[in-house]
Design a protein around this nucleic acid. Structure first.
Lengths: 158, 158
DNA sequence: CCACATTCTTGCAGTATGCAACATTAGTGA
DNA sequence: TCACTAATGTTGCATACTGCAAGAATGTGG
């Protein structure tokens, strides 16, 4: 591809990246006094993953198991997750969201979707359809290398 | 806008957001043993801002001044930034990148641009041009609300 | 000179993070 | 059944990030 195209597309994508990260940060503001960002990542994983054992959680978040351990302790103390020994394998301790924990995830997710919706609502229908296909193509092109990456999940929804 | 469009565009944008965040995280991997992510954010600000005093830095990073203070201490100890009293106002202590600090910023930035370039190179020229205009429109639509946000800078380039 | 604002700095407390060592539990082969 | 190994969770230790609050140093305006 020629250099002009290359620079233009990279600039546009980088700018979009900044905007999206800012949106993600803002969407967390409402619950910032209840959970930290790493804690919220853990809640998100539980939300989409159901009951999860500690080692799996650590892998999904890409953190050391001791880190996941203590985060889980704090979230349990805050009443946002429950921890219980797996009766089928007493080495494992499974954790899952409480109703309160799920409420927090839903609240943040709704806010972020609203923010994105507010932005795209200011675009024309033509631009909007173009954005859908362009982002879809971008995601597909990036999906191949992303699967080979070191961050399979966890980061995405923070 | 109708619900179908709305869901499709939000899904596409959210997926793109995950991909971009994963790219940003990977691009930091090469220097993860030298600087942490918050430290890298500080280096980026210095890279684009030149000499900066502590309070300004804290505002740009959206952290408490005591946090910025200690981060600056550690980066200075690591030889990545220099701190010196402003001779024109001895209350202020200005900090700036060392050559080594700038090298790290350049290294990460180059890697991220390469990753994005690799993705868009897998798209057809038509898709690429569509991505430029779609992302540009998205950024413009989001720019208005972004300026009213609480994270003017700092986050974007992390 | 005095009162005030700005700026940096430090003490304190809580959270996040990784490494290494350890105990418990499960599985496996002799 | 018994020893060996693997998987899993847990804890100790050290470091970094974070904010609040108090204090010291410096500049500004009267």
């Amino acid at each position: 591809m020629n250099g002009e195209d290359r620079d233009a597309v990279i600039s546009a994508v980088l700018a979009g990246s900044r905007l999206l990260v800012a949106i993600a940060a803002r969407s967390l503001g409402a619950v910032a006094d209840r959970v930290t960002l790493p804690q919220f990542r853990m809640l998100v994983v539980l939300s989409g993953h159901g009951e999860t054992k500690l080692v799996t959680m650590a892998e999904l978040l890409d953190v050391n198991s001791s880190t996941a351990m203590r985060m889980a302790d704090r979230l349990a103390a805050a009443g946002l997750v429950l921890r219980e020994v797996n009766p089928l394998n007493r080495r494992e301790s499974l954790m899952r969201l409480t109703d309160e924990g799920r409420r927090i995830v839903d609240q943040v997710t709704a806010r972020r979707r609203d923010e994105i919706a507010a932005i795209v609502s200011r675009m024309s229908p033509v631009e909007r359809r173009a954005l859908i296909s362009a982002m879809t193509a971008f995601n597909e092109a990036g999906g191949e290398s992303a699967e080979a990456g070191t961050h399979p999940l966890g980061w995405p929804d923070a």
